[in-house]
Write a protein that binds this DNA or RNA. Structure first.
Lengths: 197, 197
DNA sequence: GCGTTTACAAACCTTATGGTTTTGTCAAAC
DNA sequence: GTTTGACAAAACCATAAGGTTTGTAAACGC
């Protein structure tokens, strides 16, 4: 039986990651409509069947692509929390600012949000009306990062705060209302008031 | 010179309101793609030119329709605040719960959110990526309702709280995560903590 | 096992044509 | 203030043929 870690699972499925990367690249340069399974297979150098084996279907590819991009945002969040192991509010501030800055320059995100014609718009719901798995994943990571902290909140209240922060950040990712630094400061301020009890 | 009130302005442009209502009805029953200016003119009993005079253009009609629907949500918010003239947190609780309940059974909202094909999806950005005017309108109303209350917040902090609540509610309108009552309780709890200082 | 190849039906997109509808704006008439 | 008639430009629709893509399956090779 093979031991399964986060790292080794990435090494075990090198195809999957490269397929997703190729799909993102194609989406940025030519739009989601131009992404086909055989084109991905060609770019990666595998057979079309392997693409199906690794990904499953076109909708699954869309979700994998979005969740893969989300992972980059969550890496920024994790880095911010590791930079402030003891201070929660500065950690939140840095995490939010980092995520919003990443959003600003993110070409894939821009391609998804500014797509207006036909099949290119199929990705937008994954960030808006069908963002369930995205929200759940993000909330899971934040919950994990919050676990070490001893807060004056019960479990339900914790979840509520996490849900608030994640939804607020996503809202500002889609529709910014100020600079990342300013918005991060605002959200961190709110979190601070809520956590202060 | 005619005195301009909310009521008399509605009476002064009876056409506009009926046109928007007809557009909403058509959108619900046959989709946004089936909404044409001449069809609206026929339904309302005016000429096509009058529709253009009142509305301006197709994109303007879309925005007018969304803002008109928003007005219904804001009416619920206003009613909640008038029900609790002295207690801010219960007012927020009722306002949020009312808005989310209205969202649940709102056929137009459902038509917009569940549209997946072609031109029908043109309305979704008005609630997500181009929701600027919607957010601004909602924030204006909430700010007005908050004005009588003497809160331990400066102006910037007030705006930040309002922005948070409005974005959170919109997020839950698009992507609910629980019952309206439960979500309202959560948001009111957060608001309470922030306002308590 | 794991990946490739080949084959396949069904759905879908493309191209091209021509015809129709719709948009948005005008000026004139009521 | 509203209507009518007119208009160009653009968008959309119907039809058909041909190609592409999707998703599944089995046979092949290492």
């Amino acid at each position: 039986m093979t031991v399964m870690t986060a790292v080794s699972s990435a090494e075990m499925a090198p195809h999957r990651q490269r397929i997703i990367a190729a799909a993102a690249e194609l989406t940025v340069t030519s739009g989601w409509a131009s992404v086909t399974m055989s084109r991905l297979a060609d770019m990666v150098g595998v057979s079309r069947q392997t693409v199906y084996n690794e990904i499953g279907s076109k909708p699954a590819l869309a979700e994998a692509m979005v969740l893969d991009e989300l992972a980059r945002f969550l890496a920024v969040v994790n880095a911010a929390f590791e930079r402030h192991p003891a201070d929660l509010i500065p950690a939140i501030n840095d995490a939010v600012r980092g995520a919003l800055e990443l959003a600003q320059g993110n070409t894939l995100l821009h391609a998804i949000v500014s797509a207006t014609h036909g099949a290119d718009t199929e990705l937008l719901p994954l960030l808006t009306t069908h963002a369930g798995s995205l929200l759940d994943t993000a909330k899971g990571v934040v919950a994990e990062r919050l676990r070490p902290f001893d807060l004056p909140l019960d479990d339900r209240e914790r979840e509520t705060v996490i849900d608030m922060v994640v939804r607020l950040v996503l809202s500002h990712v889609m529709q910014p209302s100020g600079t990342p630094a300013q918005t991060a400061k605002d959200i961190a301020w709110i979190a601070g008031r809520v956590l202060a009890g």
